[in-house]
Structure formats: C-alpha cells, structure tokens
Nucleic acid binder design. Structure first.
Lengths: 121, 121
DNA sequence: CAAAAAAGTTGCTAAAATAAAAACTTTTAA
DNA sequence: TTAAAAGTTTTTATTTTAGCAACTTTTTTG
C-alpha cells in the first residue's frame, strides 16, 4: 500500500471530503485528487499538514495498512550479523565490549573536539 | 527550526556526508545540498528514506529540537545504532573490537564444550 | 605553511512536474 | 430520473527540478 492510498483510506475512514483536506493543506481540489491517485508527489510539509488534519502523526499515516502498525525491517545483513555475534557472548563479556567501545568513542570524540576547537588557536 | 535544518543537524550529528545521504535517497549531491538549504522541496518519500538512513522515524526527524544527545552510552542504543557507533570508530579501533569479540567467542565455545563434554565425567 | 583533496554550494537550461480552471464522469440523494 | 455533490481528467501556461560543471569552502596531507 503506497502513501497515496493510505491517505485516501484514512480520509474515507474519517469521513472527510477531498475538498476539506485540500483546503486545509492549501491546494486545489484537483491537485488533491492527484495526490490521492498518486499522480502528484506529496511534499513532506503537506504530509505534516495532512497528519495534523487527521489528528495523527506522520508515522501513523506512513505505517497505516488498514490494521495495526507493522514493525521495522532491518536489512543491513552484515550489521545484524555483527550484533548477533556480540549477543552470543555472555553478559560479562558483552559488558566489557561495550565499555571498551564507549571508551574508544569517548576518546574519539575528545580528539575530534580538540581538533576542532583547540588546535585552531 | 525548519525541516531542512533538522535534517542537516541530524546528519552532522551522526557524521554523515551529504553524498552518503544523497546516494541513499537517490538524488544528485547538488540536489541534496539544495534540500538541506531549503532551496528544493522534500518529498514525503524522500523523508521516509532519510529517516530510514538515519535509523529514525519521520516523527523523530520532524520533532527534532536541536538538542544535543547526551554522552555516548552504547547499551541504550538499538542494535543497528550500536553497529553504527562501532563503524564511527577508526579502522584500528574497529579491528581491535572485532578481534576481541572473536577471542571472547572462541573462549566461550571452549567453555561450552567443556561444560558439555568434560564436566560430566 | 602550502598544495591537494574532499565536501559543499551555486548557476545554468533542458526537461519534468505542477497549478488551476473547466469540462467531464461518477456517486449520492431527492 | 435528474439535480447536486464529489471526484477525476484534460489542457496549457508556469513553476520546479535534474544533473552537470564550475566554483567556494573545509579538511587533509606533505
């Protein structure tokens, strides 16, 4: 289900006329018709206004599928694999890894900060 | 703070280059520059892709308030975010982390094997 | 420090997308 | 059935964008 259809479904569910949504977001009724038919792109700002009109968040619109919102699918297989390896570790080892990463990141942040703010003097 | 600035702030906070986001959403780097400068409209579908790239929801982008996130505490992050943090590390640090994970996993395998085959004697 | 590379910005114009009115079709209600 | 309302489509003038290349700024390197 594409975004246009979701918006249309929600509007119909809430019993609004196209012209009502159209005037709220400030477009001609013919333009709004095209939005719902997928014949015209939806701008991010328009999506916000539509969400506002429906009393929903943009996420609620985007994830609308006629039923409950669906879960996020992670597609980065290598990242998932790396995490899976870490999670195989026992609690103690995992903590160690994360503490070490924290230290490294903090160290990196410090270096970056130094580069940006102190070294310039 | 308008949407363009929010996207820019988030990108900079996460240390991505414009071209990285640009190629993920499938636009030329100059087009992406214009998006961040507010010189080109952001389509709803693009916003979704940007959110996906940042591992955020569109609402999190829209409601981003410019507040700097607290210090890095890696265990509070989601799995993908954890990997992203690891990938921010320099090559050397990253190698160290993964070598360490390997060692720990190997060690764990030994222990598991021992538990199962030797301790029973 | 200066040179070089990388990152980001801007100007350009052909091409693509849109606006808005009005004609048209479909749905609803009488 | 037919009149009104809702929604769609066509059309053309206008606006917006794509993507390259030139340019400026920032970062990195020697």
């Amino acid at each position: 289900m594409n975004l246009a259809d979701k918006i249309k479904s929600i509007r119909e569910e809430k019993n609004f006329k196209q012209v009502e949504v159209a005037s709220h977001i400030g477009v001609d009724k013919s333009a709004y018709s095209k939005i719902e038919k997928g014949l015209r792109a939806i701008m991010a700002e328009e999506l916000q206004k539509i969400a506002q009109f429906f009393n929903l968040t943009t996420d609620q619109i985007i994830n609308y599928d006629g039923k409950v919102p669906k879960e996020v699918i992670i597609e980065d297989k290598t990242a998932v694999e790396q995490i899976r390896l870490i999670q195989q570790l026992g609690e103690e080892d995992r903590q160690t890894i994360f503490r070490l990463i924290d230290k490294m990141l903090t160290n990196k942040k410090f270096k970056d900060f130094f580069q940006k703010n102190i070294a310039a003097l």
